[in-house]
Design a binder for these strands. Structure first.
Lengths: 228, 228
DNA sequence: GTCTATATCATGATAGAC
DNA sequence: GTCTATCATGATATAGAC
């Protein structure tokens, strides 16, 4: 009964690739590992996706298409409710990062596996991957940045962009690491299961991000620091 | 005159490896690329370092030994000055992350190349690398965390550890990305050279990190959230 | 659509002359 | 210490039978 249904192959490859790319990185994963894990033939990847690069892109597109739409949908809902007034920073941050983290609880959307893959890939060295991700993200991040500009009119735009970047980094690291990295030492924090940990991660991360976003502006020694 | 001086080979390999590992990652860099860039023979890596893994470790040890010592030295100086009183959070954060970022201006310590390599490697999938880095870092990060516990007695330790983790992520991303990633869109921020950008990055990052570190504690729906 | 079999090339590592 | 030559392996990708 464990026979490969026709049309099933594609999804099996994507699932296996997602997991292996997460665990060993793009360069560190071979097509042999992928097809072996997916229990399909070695040639199937090239038949269905054309190349390893295209497979990688498809692994992301399958998840990011939904994430992008969801993020835009959330933002539209918030704006409709606000009726023209600027949104609260906490709403914007939750719409962007909260939506991402909640995706980790949704196994139909890849769950923690995809979340960790995404976190790690944001600092991936391979050029084509970074370019691809930047392109996939551009539109949505621009929309959210625009809302932050409106929400924080007294903060220079350049500063907001930087802080958005820092928020992205903190989040990427948080979702990439949550297992092997010994952030927990001897007095031990928690040994919950993955989803429980995720439930507690979100409010913690949100507090941190909002604190950073609303921090006092930095003092530069020389110029204004808002982008001359 | 461009002849290879004896004893020079080792350093040339380390320099080339540092740059290439930064640009293409560990798995994405071959020994042939390294020896070609270093203009030494292919067999030289195995002669001097034994294996690619050992080379990678030596690339990091060369820089981290100094960084670890410097961070401990800075912390000792701060504690001596404080005469038993808790340090200010800003001092601790600057001692840890400021010391790191200032390393990026010091070409003798690898400069921006090493900084970016380090930022990227913190989320590197390869198991042996993460284990190696965690081991190299353990002692120093524990010392700094202890000081944060003293500086913020009202914040649960678990919360501080998480926030330290978030700070690490924001910093790693900031130093890993600073080039290709289009955080700059059309209304353009700056086109300074690398060191100038680094000078402005530090105060910006410090504000963000301190804001996040001192943010109001998160509210959990169920329990206390301090590690039950 | 899925398989077997294979082409072609790059990889990390080593042996042994100098 | 440095070189050339080479090994065994594993990589991506493809051709062609079924």
């Amino acid at each position: 009964m464990a026979e490969t249904r026709p049309g099933d192959t594609r999804e099996r490859i994507l699932d296996a690739a997602e997991r292996l790319f997460m665990a060993h990185g793009y360069e560190g994963t071979s097509m042999r590992q992928i097809t072996s894990e997916a229990q399909v033939n070695l040639a199937a990847v090239n038949y269905h996706f054309g190349s390893k690069e295209s497979l990688m892109q498809e692994v992301f597109r399958r998840r990011l298409d939904w994430l992008n739409e969801e993020r835009l949908r959330v933002l539209r809902a918030l704006k409709a409710e606000a009726e023209g007034r600027p949104l609260k920073p906490s709403q914007i941050v939750d719409g962007f990062f909260g939506t991402l983290l909640r995706m980790g609880s949704d196994e139909r959307r890849g769950g923690m596996t995809f979340l960790r893959l995404l976190g790690r890939t944001l600092t991936e060295p391979s050029e084509f991957i970074r370019a691809f991700l930047a392109h996939e993200y551009q539109e949505v991040t621009d929309c959210y940045k625009e809302e932050l500009f409106r929400a924080l009119p007294d903060v220079p735009k350049a500063e907001i962009v930087w802080r958005f970047h820092f928020m992205l980094g903190a989040t990427a690291f948080a979702i990439a690491g949550t297992d092997e990295l010994r952030l927990v030492t001897d007095w031990q924090i928690e040994a919950d299961d993955a989803t429980d940990r995720l439930d507690r991660l979100l409010p913690r991360l949100m507090s941190f991000l909002l604190g950073g976003l609303r921090a006092p502006l930095p003092q530069f020694r020389d110029a204004a620091g808002d982008g001359r």
